[in-house]
Design a protein around this nucleic acid. Structure first.
Lengths: 104, 104
DNA sequence: GCGACTCATAATCGCTAGGTCATGGGTTCA
DNA sequence: TGAACCCATGACCTAGCGATTATGAGTCGC
């Protein structure tokens, strides 16, 4: 069940989502996960950044509910949270008349 | 005519847009401008922030191409740049399969 | 031109964000 | 149990952000 959202908490949540999206590396991670789920180590291998840094970025994305993690043996698999991404998108842009025509 | 965009410049632009959106005050300003255009002074009157602060926020939104300004006598009128907002939205979320069904 | 009004910009300050290295906790396997 | 592997977290540094006050640059009316 969805708990009711006040406009305030909705705004805070959107801010968290936008902050998560407001970084080039995190955008690239999301696009990577759009292909398929990946383990942290695999993601690290695709960037020129340290493992802790990537782990931090993943944490931010998770906090924003844009990805979901799942332990699989020694590995932790991250996958895109499609539904949450689409939902955030609807929620924010739905407030703008001019964007209504782009949403269905 | 649209100038061609490399993926890199597209990502940079999206980052600028998301950074602009990643602030509660700026989100509120956008929603305010969604009603109708407003002069800077009018916007300042609706927030509990100083005039320079609001001016800064407007500058950020303008840099992200989310608003447009126009001098009108002593005043400067800001209006929402609907088309650019919708375009950014399409451009980013269009990359995600799961969002395709939300875009038309 | 002068004063009043409106807004943008400069200088500054405290806090957050993104990066690093070092370390700790969970899991597997012998 | 202990060693090896994978990942998260802590401590730290630098850069950027959001806020302020003070000031400068356009514009209007006299």
């Amino acid at each position: 069940m969805e708990s009711p959202q006040t406009p305030r908490t909705a705004t805070r949540k959107m801010t968290k989502v936008f902050k998560a999206l407001a970084d080039g590396t995190r955008q690239e991670i999301l696009q990577l996960l759009e292909e398929q789920p990946y383990a942290v180590g695999e993601i690290v291998a695709k960037f020129d950044l340290s493992q802790p840094t990537i782990s931090r970025h993943l944490s931010v994305l998770k906090e924003a509910d844009l990805v979901v993690d799942q332990r699989r043996g020694q590995n932790v698999i991250y996958r895109l949270n499609d539904m949450a991404l689409a939902a955030s998108m609807r929620q924010f842009f739905g407030r703008f008349r001019s964007c209504q025509e782009v949403l269905r």
